[in-house]
Design a protein around this nucleic acid. Structure first.
Lengths: 140, 140
DNA sequence: CTATATGCAAAAGCTTTGCATATTC
DNA sequence: GAATATGCAAAGCTTTTGCATATAG
């Protein structure tokens, strides 16, 4: 999700480009960890456009999710996390110690199937355990 | 999760058995669909013990989750669902049409692995698509 | 100029909390 | 009788909504 293609895509689809939306896009790009809550995104966006309101941030994020540019994730009843890595198929690893979410690309998924009469269209995997950093730090 | 063993286990661990808790246990057992929100459980519990408060229902459910007797699930930012089928390993199917959650037992999971340095302790799968009933009804 | 986005402030939904009272063991 | 559970009501957090105003195209 680069800034250029992104804003272009917006314009193409008849969405207006405003300073507020640009700030939200920037927040989604310029960061280390790539799973942010709406509030974290709001916070980052305000450092660029101080007047941006929470409502606008939510509006923009929901719009992006509807368009499939962003994926919304929830873990353990927490707030929704927004994942800009929507174009590239991947799954998630939740660290039991620091709570961090990493994108992962598991192998061997081809074998997974359902014997029941369910028509599967999509599959989401959540791995849980220790992230590499926590594993290095802890004695466990 | 039978009523007997359940109450026994509670007592054994020093938890007190009250009419309210019994009503919550009953709500978790006597139902068709087995993924209920706290509010649905409260509603069912009140039909047995009308005075039971929401707080007590939440307290009880949280206690059970901490003890591993119940699994807490969240999908798509919705309210927490409680799954009494915690002893038996299984995964979930979310119907895109009716939103129903089914327990499923996929095959071929043995092959799934992570090449990254993550220590996986648990794996949760969420299948999405059409449940058999919706598939039968719709033309899709 | 018109359609759309914004901001504000209020409200909605789910869950937790504090504390006095009641109850189990 | 002591430790624990309950109920109530208030508060906390995340997210949505309504509407007047501002602004992009």
């Amino acid at each position: 999700m680069t800034s250029e293609s992104f804003l272009d895509r917006m314009r193409t689809r008849g969405l207006r480009v405003t300073p507020q939306r640009r700030a939200v896009f920037a927040a989604l790009e310029g960061h280390g960890s790539i799973h942010l809550t709406a509030d974290e995104i709001w916070s980052r966006a305000r450092s660029v456009v101080p007047e941006v309101s929470r409502a606008t941030v939510y509006n923009t994020l929901n719009e992006l999710v509807e368009r499939g540019e962003l994926q919304a994730l929830t873990f353990d009843g927490g707030p929704v996390l927004f994942d800009p890595n929507a174009s590239h198929p991947h799954h998630h690893f939740v660290c039991r110690d620091c709570g961090r979410i990493d994108d992962v690309e598991p192998e061997g998924l081809e074998q997974v199937r359902l014997a029941s009469g369910h028509r599967t269209e999509r599959l989401e995997l959540v791995f849980r355990g220790q992230c590499p950093e926590c594993a290095a730090t802890s004695t466990a």
